[in-house]
C-alpha cells in the first residue's frame, strides 16, 4: 500500500481524480436543484467533437487546448439547445436528446477518421470516451486544481446570487442579478469542470459525477451550504476510493469504478433517507 503512495504517477492520478470529483460534486448541485441535470449530460457528450477537432489540428495531446476545444463545443451545444427551445415547440427532453446524439455522433465520426493516424494512439484520444485516469499528467492535475479554485471562488463570491437564482429567478431579476450572467457563470464553471474531468472518467460518465453527489447530499441535509460541502465530500470519497480500488484490482478501469462507487453512495443515501422519512411518519 505505502509503496503505491510513493509513486509519483499514482499520486498524480489520486489527487487529480479526487479533486476533480469534489469540484464536479460541488458545481453539479446547482443543476440538480434547478432540475436541469440532463443539460449537463448533453453538454458533456458535446465536448467530444471539440477535443477531437483540436487533436486533428494539432496531432498531439495538449491538455489546455483540449480544454479550450471542449469548452467551445460545450457552448455551441448549449446555444443550440437554447435556439431550439426558444424557437420551436419541441420539448426540452427531445431537444437534449437530439443535441446529445448529434454532437456525440459527430465526435465518434471524427474520432474514427483521426484514429487512423499513429499519433492518435499515442495521445490516447480514444480514452476520452470511457476515460483513462492513468494518462493524467502533471499539467492535467494543475488544471484540475485551477478549475477547483474557480468553482470555490464562484461559491465564495456569488453564494447569495446562486441561492436566489435557484430559488426564485424572477426575484433575482428584480433584485438586479441578471439571470443571463448567472447562466453564463454556471455554464462556464460546469464546462471547465467537465472538460478537465473527461480524461479520467470519460465523456459518457462525466455527467454522473455532476449529478450523483448532489442527489446524495440532498438526502442528508436541508441547508444549502451543507449540501454543497457534502456533495464535494461525496465526490471526493468516490474519486479517492475509486482510484485506490482500481489500482489494487487488476483490469478494473478507474473512471467507471469511481462512477460506480458514486452510484452506490447515491443509492444508499436515497434508501436511508426513505427509511428516515417513513419513521418520522
Amino acid at each position: 500500500m505505502l509503496e503505491l503512495f510513493k509513486q509519483y504517477n499514482f499520486l498524480l492520478v489520486l489527487v487529480g481524480v479526487t479533486v476533480f470529483s469534489a469540484s464536479a460534486g460541488a458545481i453539479g448541485v446547482i443543476s440538480v436543484l434547478r432540475r436541469q441535470s440532463l443539460i449537463g449530460d448533453a453538454i458533456s457528450h458535446a465536448t467530444l467533437p471539440g477535443i477531437v477537432i483540436v487533436f486533428m489540428l494539432l496531432q498531439t495531446k495538449n491538455s489546455f487546448l483540449f480544454l479550450v476545444g471542449a469548452i467551445i463545443a460545450g457552448i455551441f451545444a448549449y446555444l443550440l439547445i437554447l435556439l431550439i427551445n426558444n424557437n420551436t415547440k419541441i420539448d426540452l427532453d427531445t431537444t437534449l436528446a437530439i443535441t446529445l446524439t448529434f454532437f456525440f455522433g459527430l465526435g465518434m465520426m471524427l474520432l474514427s477518421i483521426s484514429s487512423k493516424s499513429k499519433n492518435a494512439a499515442q495521445a490516447g484520444i480514444q480514452e476520452y470516451i470511457f476515460g483513462s485516469a492513468a494518462t493524467i499528467n502533471q499539467m492535467d492535475v494543475i488544471m484540475i486544481v485551477i478549475t477547483s479554485i474557480i468553482v470555490l471562488c464562484v461559491y465564495l463570491f456569488l453564494y447569495k446570487e446562486i441561492k436566489i437564482f435557484i430559488f426564485d429567478e424572477l426575484q433575482a431579476i428584480l433584485s438586479g442579478f441578471e439571470p443571463k450572467i448567472m447562466h453564463i457563470i454556471i455554464l462556464i464553471s460546469s464546462l471547465i469542470v467537465i472538460s478537465v474531468g473527461i480524461q479520467s472518467v470519460g465523456v459518457i460518465l462525466v455527467s454522473a459525477m455532476l449529478i450523483g453527489p448532489g442527489v446524495s447530499a440532498l438526502q442528508w441535509s436541508k441547508k444549502f451550504h451543507v449540501v454543497v460541502i457534502l456533495s464535494a465530500i461525496f465526490g471526493a470519497i468516490s474519486g479517492f476510493t475509486g482510484v485506490l480500488l482500481s489500482s489494487y484490482v487488476d483490469k478494473l478501469p478507474t473512471g467507471s469504478t469511481v462512477v460506480f462507487i458514486m452510484s452506490i453512495i447515491t443509492v444508499v443515501s436515497i434508501l436511508i433517507s426513505r427509511l428516515k422519512f417513513k419513521k418520522e411518519k
Binding site: L33, K163, F167, D168, S221, K222, F224
Partner: peptide, 17 residues
C-alpha cells in the same frame, strides 16, 4: 407555486433575500 420550494433553505434565509 412559481418558486422552487425544494430548495434546501430556511424561512429566515428566504426573508433575507
Amino acid at each position: 407555486g412559481n418558486v422552487n420550494w425544494d430548495f434546501p433553505t430556511t424561512v429566515l434565509d428566504v426573508v433575507l433575500m
